[in-house]
Design a protein around this nucleic acid. Structure first.
Lengths: 224, 224
DNA sequence: TGATGTGAAGCGGTTCACAGCC
DNA sequence: GGCTGTGAACCGCTTCACATCA
């Protein structure tokens, strides 16, 4: 029997968190864990844990809890972490090279295979072990190296065009650091990380506009 | 008259987006704009725009729209972008130095004043114009330079301790790149950006576990 | 007995639709 | 007439509470 369901992104994001907790527990040699103990130890919500996991099957044993090893393996499969992913970064500026450096050394199943830029003076150089290619050869390199994840690290005004280039090359998973809203085709997953908005949200908090706010209303309802 | 209200973070985050749009319109010399035209041009939701703005006052003119210049100034004030912010980054590893470099050159009201690390071989060196200090002198430097924003870019296992150090130094706005959930005191704003979870959400999508998912149920409800 | 899995209630944010005002 | 500002309806996620089962 199969039940079709739409699982929310917040829920799958939490699976990442759960996996980290399980990694810790596994490292400590724990065999079993209950949603309640995860709640108290890692400051999570037990009902939410059970609901999130139940989206993907019945992984637990009633009256007992979850087997750490088995649940960990399930999460790895669900998150696709049992497969290698090959990443390219478009934009070899400050952020792009930083990310190449950062991800490049992470011992994980994501590996950066290529950087791309339009600037002739950068093309051919290397950042760590990663070579910078001409954006013109994008489709070719993506195909050659079987790249399946793209990171957009170009200025906002070029981001939409880059996204279309990426999509045309057949890449289905894109992480975007350009601070602009992008339109994406169905079947392509776009995750935008907006460092500017994040900083501004801190600034907003410091300015006192966030959280509890006193809305000023003059007699006629207009603000001056 | 004053009305006390709690404004959600998603709403204030959207103000950043609106400000960007207004900057574009201002650069083009537009004097007025309506929520409807913002919707069609920037792919936003007009009702949401009106609600978000109405949280902070009546900035519009019925039957007409919003004055670009005036609304832009209001948003800048609300977001606290009329004030300079001084940033420090704790952790002079790959990510920390990358961010120092990235934010350091951004022409904005955020300026990176100091990097901190525990590693003696890094202390004293410079990343661009930003010097790396001993974490032991954290409170002192923060006070000396009037730093009001901290960025945590240390490995997960140290993040909570660093957060407490930051809080004790009186900093009220913290951006965290360590992939761990942190406990924070009331009155301190913590924004966590989890690059690992973001990548894993892409991986999850590629694995087909995201979006519409077929929940497998065997006869007895157990998954094998 | 005790922890999972899950309908139901609760809650917050989004969208609708229209009153109010220029 | 037209667009803002806003109560009301709507929707989806979270939390609760308990039936279920090892």
């Amino acid at each position: 029997m199969m039940k079709a369901e739409k699982i929310s992104e917040v829920s799958t994001n939490r699976l990442s968190i759960y996996l980290r907790c399980l990694n810790e527990l596994a490292a400590e040699g724990e065999r079993m864990v209950s949603s309640g103990s995860l709640e108290s130890r890692f400051n999570l919500n037990s009902a939410q844990i059970r609901k999130d996991l139940a989206n993907f099957g019945e992984f637990g044993v009633r009256g007992v809890g979850y087997y750490v090893k088995s649940l960990r393996e399930h999460l790895i499969t669900i998150l696709g972490l049992d497969k290698e992913h090959r990443v390219c970064i478009i934009g070899a500026g400050r952020l792009g090279t930083a990310l190449a450096d950062y991800y490049g050394f992470k011992s994980s199943n994501f590996q950066v295979f290529a950087l791309f830029d339009i600037d002739k003076t950068k093309i051919g150089k290397k950042v760590g072990k990663v070579k910078i290619f001409d954006i013109k050869s994008f489709a070719e390199i993506v195909k050659r190296d079987n790249i399946d994840v793209a990171v957009i690290a170009v200025p906002g005004e070029f981001a939409q065009n880059v996204l279309e280039l990426v999509t045309r090359a057949g890449i289905k998973a894109v992480m975007n650091f350009a601070p602009v809203p992008l339109r994406v085709l169905d079947g392509v997953k776009l995750k935008t990380i907006d460092l500017t908005t994040s900083l501004e949200s801190l600034s907003c908090f410091l300015a006192g506009s966030n959280g509890k706010y006193l809305k000023p209303i003059s007699k006629n309802g207009r603000i001056y």
